[in-house]
């Protein structure tokens, strides 16, 4: 358990660096951007205090913002994700609730559950992020298109990250 708690700060730094240095430079067709760093929020244990998740999300978003010169943009979107996360978790809960100490990952709750959970989370985050970025509704469908392509792109990369993590967890 203690090992786990220590591993979170390392994960945090890794996600920020990978997002800031590598993924921010990747675009599909010049419009679709993958934002994988939110996987850190998605992976936090289900029982984590909601307010704590929100604080972590704010710091995580702010760290990403430092790399992109957009102070507050990723922070606000990540906080929004932290806000909807409990509702998403509740909606997707199995009939008799979550077992204690089960992580919200594919290895913990299965691929079908994880992909739905990730897709909904990513969509909420990207929706908020892209609309804060353009800050107007006049080009609604343009923005919507970019949100959907980016969501798909992020989901693929997050699934890949989950596959790698899956193997690591299996070996333990």
């Amino acid at each position: 358990m203690i090992k786990k708690i220590f591993s979170y700060p390392i994960q945090f730094v890794l996600f920020v660096l990978i997002q800031g240095l590598v993924l921010n430079n990747i675009q599909l067709g010049g419009t679709a951007n993958p934002y994988v760093y939110i996987l850190f929020i998605l992976w936090l244990p289900i029982e984590t205090n909601k307010a704590l998740v929100m604080g972590i999300a704010f710091l995580l978003g702010l760290s990403i913002d430092v790399f992109t010169d957009t102070v507050g943009m990723h922070a606000s979107a990540s906080v929004f994700l932290a806000f909807v996360r409990p509702f998403v978790l509740r909606t997707l809960a199995p009939r008799d609730g979550y077992e204690v100490n089960i992580p919200p990952t594919a290895s913990g709750l299965g691929w079908f559950w994880f992909l739905r959970y990730a897709a909904i989370g990513i969509f909420f985050h990207h929706f908020f992020l892209f609309f804060v970025e353009v800050f107007r509704f006049s080009e609604f469908f343009d923005t919507m298109g970019r949100i959907l392509t980016s969501t798909a792109f992020s989901l693929v990369l997050i699934a890949l990250a989950q596959i790698f993590n899956f193997n690591v967890e299996e070996k333990r």
């Binding site: 307010a51 929100m54 604080g55 704010f58 978003g61 702010l62 957009t70 102070v71 507050g72 943009m73 922070a75 606000s76 906080v79 929004f80 932290a82 806000f83 804060v132």
Partner: peptide, 14 residues
């Protein structure tokens, strides 16, 4: 809490 943090984020943004 969500509103407060979001206001802080937007304050930073603007």
């Amino acid at each position: 809490l969500f509103l407060a943090v979001e206001v802080l984020a937007f304050y930073l943004l603007f």
